[in-house]
Amino acid sequence: MVWSLSKKRREDSQSETDFAPPPTQPVQANNPYGGPDQTYTPPPEKQPIPEAFDQNAAAFARNGSISMPRSAPPGQGGYNVPGAAAPGTFKGASSTHGDNVGTFNGGSYRISHRDTNSIVTFQLAIGAPLKAKPGVMLAMSSTMTLRGEFKFSVKKFLAGSKFGVSTYTGPGELILAPFILGDCMVLQLHGDKKWRIPHEAFLACTSGVEHDHVTQDLTKGMFSGAGFFVYELSKVGLVWIQSFGAIIKKELAPGERYFVDNGYLVAWDCDFKIERVASGGIISGFTSGEGLSCKFTGPGTVYMQTRNLNGFAMALKVSTASS
């Protein structure tokens, strides 16, 4: 059961309104850092790779993919192994590093200071709304309007999520920053598929996006690291999410299977199940240090964070106890 201080009809009408472009501001040249009122300097082109490198290594360094040989060693029956990418289609997990800029209906954004100190800077037009997690505002223009809403639900209560929702309305500039040291990225929703993220990964979204808590089954809730309740993102719009550490992306081909250890998930649009990673018996799994993990099956995309918050907290406890 949900109580809201604002009517949903008004929110729906906002999502259907065509807003004017955000206000423009004077450009400051010769500034390598960029910003909403500054010149954006794209990263330099990649340096050419020496021909002395192995061809596969050179190809992987250029575009993150390699061409696997089609001839198989004796007795292995080819490289078309179930759960692996087809020959010539393998792509490694790729970085999402670098400033990210874009526009949406009624605004524009820039994600900067990536990997550990990320911030998201918005320019909103008159009347353009943006929903965000409470408490993540770093700064905003005096022309902006902030309105808080209180939404209670049993799922939010059980998930430990915040009951408040902050809605910022333009015109002006808005800067959002995550609570933890990590990265930010944007997901584009086109209405053709649904994404799922841990509830703590949510940062902000446009008014046309629907995000609601859904329940994972007992096994996923206990061992995925994302908890029993996750956000399911649907409809059309943009969603900005946060991570602990940098964010890397893995594209899965149809039928390809891929393990992600619990505590490293940021966003995914394909199904997974919990399985034991290490082969062999219980002793093998215990000594390898890897237990149950999330096994994804393509096609789909998985975003992962490079640090585990629970592992980091445990390391701090150990360091504090030994000092």
Rank of each mutant, 00 (worst) to 15 (best):
48 P>Q: 14
48 P>G: 11
50 P>R: 13
50 P>N: 13
54 D>M: 08
54 D>E: 15
54 D>F: 02
56 N>K: 14
57 A>S: 11
58 A>K: 15
60 F>H: 12
64 G>F: 07
66 I>A: 13
68 M>V: 14
70 R>L: 13
72 A>K: 07
74 P>Y: 03
75 G>W: 05
75 G>Q: 10
75 G>C: 02
76 Q>F: 14
77 G>P: 05
78 G>F: 07
79 Y>S: 14
81 V>N: 06
82 P>H: 08
83 G>V: 09
84 A>R: 05
84 A>F: 09
84 A>M: 10
85 A>Q: 01
86 A>Y: 06
86 A>L: 10
91 K>T: 15
91 K>C: 13
92 G>T: 14
94 S>V: 12
96 T>M: 15
97 H>P: 02
99 D>H: 07
101 V>I: 05
103 T>Y: 00
104 F>S: 04
107 G>D: 00
108 S>I: 02
112 S>G: 09
112 S>K: 09
114 R>I: 09
115 D>P: 00
115 D>M: 12
115 D>A: 12
116 T>N: 13
116 T>C: 08
118 S>P: 00
119 I>E: 09
119 I>Q: 06
119 I>S: 02
120 V>W: 00
121 T>D: 08
125 A>I: 01
125 A>F: 01
129 P>K: 03
130 L>R: 01
132 A>H: 06
137 M>F: 05
139 A>R: 10
141 S>L: 02
144 M>T: 04
144 M>R: 05
146 L>F: 06
147 R>I: 13
147 R>F: 00
147 R>Q: 15
148 G>H: 07
148 G>C: 03
149 E>R: 08
152 F>Y: 10
155 K>E: 14
159 A>S: 15
